[in-house]
Design a binder for these strands. Sequence first.
DNA 1: GCAAAAGTGTTTGGACTACACCCATGT
DNA 2: ACATGGGTGTAGTCCAAACACTTTTGC
Lengths: 228, 228
Amino acid sequence: MPGAQNIKVAVDAVVFGYTSKEGLSVLLIKRNIQPFKNSWALPGGLVRDDESLEDAVQRELREETSISISYLEQLYSFGEPGRDPRNRVISITYYGLVRPDAFDVKADTDASDVAWFNIKKLPSLAFDHTTIISVAHERLKSKMLYQPVGFELLEEKFPFSELEKLYLAVLDRPFDRRNFKKKITKYGFLEETNEKQALEGAGRPGNLFRFNEEKYFLLKKEGISFEI
Amino acid sequence: MPGAQNIKVAVDAVVFGYTSKEGLSVLLIKRNIQPFKNSWALPGGLVRDDESLEDAVQRELREETSISISYLEQLYSFGEPGRDPRNRVISITYYGLVRPDAFDVKADTDASDVAWFNIKKLPSLAFDHTTIISVAHERLKSKMLYQPVGFELLEEKFPFSELEKLYLAVLDRPFDRRNFKKKITKYGFLEETNEKQALEGAGRPGNLFRFNEEKYFLLKKEGISFEI
DNA sequence: GCAAAAGTGTTTGGACTACACCCATGT
DNA sequence: ACATGGGTGTAGTCCAAACACTTTTGC
């Protein structure tokens, strides 16, 4: 009988948040243990023997960042020997989306070890976490081309330009404003309210929209064909 | 310090093969150890401490089925507590595609514990392997709508109808023959040869095609937009 | 000659692209 | 009045869908 396997199983989470001010952001923690003590890293940790992978992610997020998250999806499993300098650790990664409410963690832990970082201004990160974030970003980009995205990231009501800015921030390339609106509204998962809202600064106030959850999740299942 | 983690890490592979006679098939092994002794199962096993996940998959495939495989992609990681009745085992699954040549394993191991099963006639399987196969099948279905598929599954030269039957077998729904040909040939990754080949039985012999590997793999990277 | 598979074109509607001007508000 | 962002329509092009008959071969 060969020696027992000596590999640890961890989960890590790439949590995306969005505000029009800060753009697309990722939630990071500052490690206070070795290895990579004092480096920024993705929230995560070892899976307990009796909990599911999703539960482990939620627990770590609660423990390390005090947020909990409604949309979470498995991303990829990273398992190269040597990705952790001490033990063999394979990491099963997830990515999630949160609404701006969860940005409160930032205020609460201002001087602490949790913070949001704009996706384009990431610090250097522990382990292979930079790679993991870029895989997550690619996944999100391609996802938003065949499924509606936004419900999990925007406030309940929002001017249409918020959705547009979200797509711009994630896709990171320009597109035609009018055509985008036509395509999005065609699917009917957006409802127009009668309320208007002026953004800060000058400009004509825009109508507020909200998602029709039923149609949104239906289209999420069925998939849409989107070419922005 | 809490008790050490006691979770094992395994890999499992869903290997798809295709012939026009047998259709889309999956490579299975018959287990000769507990648990699920004498059940059919996916090839796979525990990862060694010093090998990468991909290496582990290739090694298990070699040991258990004697095939090696050129196209292999990570599928998903399954980790529910209880999916293995004895220990906590998380399985990182891969899927792969092989050409009919590899179907030789069937002949070689006729009376043994390796066999191909048509995707629609699977036996009952160990663990959650039925679920894993259906996830892999769904992945393959959606993959072939945005990337060319076939090079890894067909012989070097083949009549066009072979490719069409492959798509029919995987997608498992009818589509228009003429429009399919227009769409496929438009991308230019197929080359027409001057050879003709009569299938068994009656019918007009068709021209043989081959893949232009360069364009094929280019389109594989770039992605194509396919609506069959 | 008949059964089986291969080969091939046209029409039509819908979808995507490109593109520019006026409107409502704050300062 | 001007700066800022909101709101809107059309013409042209391309792509996809629908659709059926003729050709080559084996038997």
